[in-house]
Nucleic acid binder design. Structure first.
Lengths: 210, 210
DNA sequence: CTATCTGTGTAACCAATGTTACTGTATAAG
DNA sequence: CTTATACAGTAACATTGGTTACACAGATAG
């Protein structure tokens, strides 16, 4: 059995299933900022996160982006799950947030394991549940918050995911994720700095007030 | 077996499961605009839509609303599905869009049928998939569209759900669903009328350009 | 019929956000 | 060192959407 699979999933799956995952799964490594899947790509396997983190993005016709949520160790991509039901094109883009290790499960196993392992069924249901909750949270954020609050939430999430209060990012990248312009972000960041919530530097932002 | 269950679900479930649903399910009727479930209510059964339509709403701390999506015959509430996994409080409000008939399934049956019926498993997966897609669509709408486009989309959805190009509604009600103010809606509706896309009347809007 | 209430139209103004343009500065490339 | 590039700061302005205030008309209650 692969050590990484055991580390990330031993609390979720029984030994037999962990063995199967280790056998049929294909390990994949991604560097930070490497693209994992693109909108419109066809999906033939389902990723389980072993380590690292990935961000899930949505894009409109004009190429405008929006960050939906992050996935971490122990998570899977519910969008990919959905693809096992016929619709096999990805609705989202996934990008590695940091060096990330995945294990890819052929989708044929989905059906088989769903009948065979109760723990697998529960995991799939819980994944759907988590993703729905995160989507709901995303909707709350963009519908009910102003840009300054969204920005602060973004920085906090980012700091948490990277386990580092110093967020390495440019204003332009933030602007892409929040679907706004660089100027707007610079303006709001400056306000937050004046309030003492953050400290600004070239290519990095330190989140002070958690 | 109940006729309504057969009508709405005979293409989805085998006869045996239809029988079980008819036996253990509790029929409920709702008038138009009647509240079906409120945010924070605990969920002890899962609704299957037999006829009519319901709208699903999200609310923030200040009581501001936002329409998420509509459910129709053959649909179920994925949020409720999620509740079978421990989190038993509703995250959303559901309101009958028209006279609506539901059959409520005790959540204990969920687990049982998931093991027993493949068609049930598929239905549950497909429901999650549909809801995720709809949430994604909702996010696209609020993130990428301006209010005039959102308004037009809203009117078209409404006309479709009610199978009537004459939408019976006030500007204030639209404003609640789209999380904006009545004045903004009146202003934009007038513009759409001038373009010939809709015709305005007291308490109703006719969608002309489909 | 008259008074009241509800729904709609509209102007004037304000706040938030998006856009354009230009500046300066740190870093990288030559 | 010099030049080019990427990043950030900021002013000025445009646009969208939210707020307040008031007028008016259709519906309804008395």
């Amino acid at each position: 059995m692969l050590q990484e699979v055991f580390d990330a999933y031993s609390f979720v799956f029984e030994k037999e299933l962990l063995e199967e995952i280790s056998e049929v799964g294909i390990l994949k490594d991604f560097e930070a900022n490497e693209k994992i899947i693109e909108i419109g790509d066809s999906v033939s396997s389902m990723p389980l996160l072993l380590s690292g983190a990935i961000k899930i993005l949505r894009e409109d016709q004009d190429g405008d982006e929006l960050l939906l949520y992050f996935l971490e160790r122990g998570d899977t991509c519910a969008m990919t799950l959905s693809c096992c039901l016929g619709n096999t094109k990805s609705e989202i883009r996934a990008v590695a947030e940091m060096p990330t290790k995945l294990i890819m499960i052929p989708i044929e196993k989905m059906e088989e394991w769903t009948s065979k392992y109760k723990s697998w069924r529960n995991y799939v249901f819980e994944s759907y549940h988590s993703r729905l909750s995160e989507m709901l949270d995303t909707i709350d954020t963009i519908a009910f918050l102003n840009m300054d609050e969204r920005l602060l939430k973004y920085l906090r999430d980012k700091a948490k995911i990277n386990q580092n209060e110093l967020v390495q990012i440019t204003h332009q990248e933030i602007a892409y994720d929040l679907h706004t312009s660089r100027v707007v972000i610079s303006r709001l960041l400056k306000k937050l700095e004046l309030k003492g919530t953050i400290a600004l530097n070239r290519n990095s932002i330190k989140v002070i007030d958690l």
